[in-house]
């Protein structure tokens, strides 16, 4: 805590922050394009095609549109909380990128409790949704916020518990060391990834992560047919864009965590000249995240929505006991070996 930063350290830190956050923000904006394009292909549509080649400039057009739209605050809304809610949901979503290792050196800071830090920060994101729904002073947003907070509390339990098995094997909470612990191989060619040791934990993690980020088939918080758009029904222009950004950022965060914990993070084959070896880990990491995002989009475009009681029953009566059983089994094996 008490070491002082020299000015060159400070410069390197600033460059890392700018590179990571610049890259992440750009990627988030283009995720909307990926989602629309992939979903369109699944449903035999062309998707966005008009703005730029392959519709590639569509996110920029959307961003401009968000900027110039009228910013409506409902008459009976609680003005302060209404304006604060999108900020409250976006800041935690972006903060978690400060501990994610995008490569051996491309990480803003490696906290010793990095994994818990991400869980702590993302658990604050629910306030954005709850306050947004409540401050709108309108019934659909309120119901969406209620559902969402109940859902997030329920699934946060199994999400956190599913990780415990991995932690017992890796024996660390630092994200960089989690990646390091999966570096070697079995029999020379099978990578030592935790997914082979903890397949049940991985399944629980993926299901709860989808529920935690309010995505289909768990998007009860905004289910269009029942609640118009859930907690952000009353939001327009940039505030709506901030909610959307936060949702995509959370998607990337849970995907990055899944990659780090179960798929070896930035590890992968390193070949070629020196500069390529330096860049490849980040490439592997981003590709693995992208696979998860692709899976998310496929889920959204193919699977129908759960009913609310099914969602709650599934969370409490299936996922929670399963994750507890997984912890018990893992601790037995760890204690014996």
């Amino acid at each position: 805590m008490s070491e002082y930063l020299t000015s060159s350290d400070f410069m390197i830190l600033m460059i890392k922050i700018i590179v990571i956050f610049g890259g992440v923000m750009g990627a988030l904006v283009y995720l909307t394009w990926i989602e629309r394009k992939v979903m369109a292909r699944v449903q035999m549509r062309p998707g966005p095609t008009r703005v730029g080649p392959f519709g590639l400039l569509q996110p920029i057009a959307d961003g401009l549109k968000f900027l110039f739209k009228e910013d409506v605050v409902p008459a009976n809304a609680n003005r302060f909380l209404y304006i604060a809610a999108p900020v409250v949901s976006l800041i935690p979503a972006l903060l978690s990128f400060s501990v994610i290792p995008f490569g051996p050196w491309l990480q803003v800071t490696d906290l010793s409790v990095g994994l818990l830090f991400i869980f702590a920060i993302t658990s604050l994101g629910v306030y954005g949704i709850v306050l947004g729904g409540w401050a709108s002073n309108s019934k659909y947003p309120l119901m969406g916020a209620m559902r969402s907070s109940a859902q997030m509390i329920s699934y946060e339990l199994s999400l956190t518990l599913s990780v415990v098995g991995v932690l017992m094997i890796a024996n660390t909470l630092s994200l960089n060391q989690l990646v390091m612990s999966q570096q070697r191989t079995w029999l020379g060619f099978i990578p030592r990834w935790n997914i082979f040791l903890q397949p049940v934990a991985f399944l629980i993690y993926v299901v709860s992560a989808v529920a935690e980020t309010n995505r289909l088939p768990f998007d009860l918080a905004e289910s269009e047919q029942e609640l118009v758009a859930g907690w952000h029904t009353e939001y327009s222009s940039l505030k709506f864009a901030m909610f959307m950004l936060a949702e995509y950022a959370n998607m990337v965060t849970v995907s990055a965590l899944a990659t780090i914990m179960f798929f070896g993070g930035w590890s992968g084959p390193l070949v070629g000249p020196h500069w390529l070896k330096a860049a490849l880990p980040t490439f592997w990491f981003v590709s693995k995240i992208f696979l998860f995002i692709f899976f998310y989009v496929l889920l959204r475009s193919t699977i129908p929505r759960f009913r609310y009681d099914q969602l709650m029953n599934f969370g409490w009566k299936v996922l929670l006991p399963l994750s507890l059983a997984n912890i018990l089994a893992t601790s037995f094996v760890v204690a014996i070996s």
Partner: peptide, 18 residues
């Protein structure tokens, strides 16, 4: 610090607000 945020700010207070 992290546990304080997870348990109190992230779980118990969500129930309060709820």
């Amino acid at each position: 610090a992290v546990i304080q945020i997870i348990v109190y700010a992230g779980a118990i207070m969500v129930l309060f607000v709820f």
